[in-house]
């Protein structure tokens, strides 16, 4: 079902003589979001202000939500969105309000 859904919409195959498969757009969007998520993960680890680290983690989770959608898995996406975008930043903000906001050396 996965490759069939992407191949029935390969309208770009009429461009020019050679056939450009419909998965090209798929891989392009996946590549852009994967790169952004890698950058966001690196920034979340090496950040001293812990509130900004929570925000970077929420950005990385948003990019992962796009990746799960592109792999055609709506049930995993429906569970991943409340946990990673809503509850994990909420619990982490309660945590940094009770301990410390600036990470020391």
């Amino acid at each position: 079902m996965y490759s069939h859904a992407w191949q029935t919409s390969s309208i770009l195959s009429y461009v020019g003589e050679k056939m450009i498969p419909g998965e090209t757009l798929h891989y392009l969007v996946m590549a852009v979001t994967a790169l952004i998520s890698v950058v966001a993960t690196y920034m979340a680890i090496t950040e001293k202000d812990l509130l900004k680290a929570v925000i970077f983690s929420a950005l990385q989770s948003g990019m992962y939500a796009i990746l799960y959608f592109l792999l055609l898995a709506p049930d995993i996406l429906l569970v991943y969105i409340p946990v990673a975008v809503g509850l994990i930043p909420g619990v982490l903000i309660v945590l940094i309000s009770k301990t410390e906001r600036w990470e020391k050396e």
């Binding site: 859904a5 992407w6 029935t8 919409s9 509130l51 925000i55 929420a58 939500a65 959608f69 055609l72 709506p74 996406l77 429906l78 969105i81 409340p82 975008v85 809503g86 930043p89 909420g90 903000i93």
Partner: peptide, 24 residues
């Protein structure tokens, strides 16, 4: 992609990003 079940994932996204705004 002609899949109709993928539209149920739109509503939780809109709701939980509002919750993130309220937490911050």
């Amino acid at each position: 992609l002609k899949q109709s079940l993928l539209t149920v994932t739109l509503i939780p996204l809109a709701l939980w990003v509002y919750a993130l705004d309220v937490y911050v």
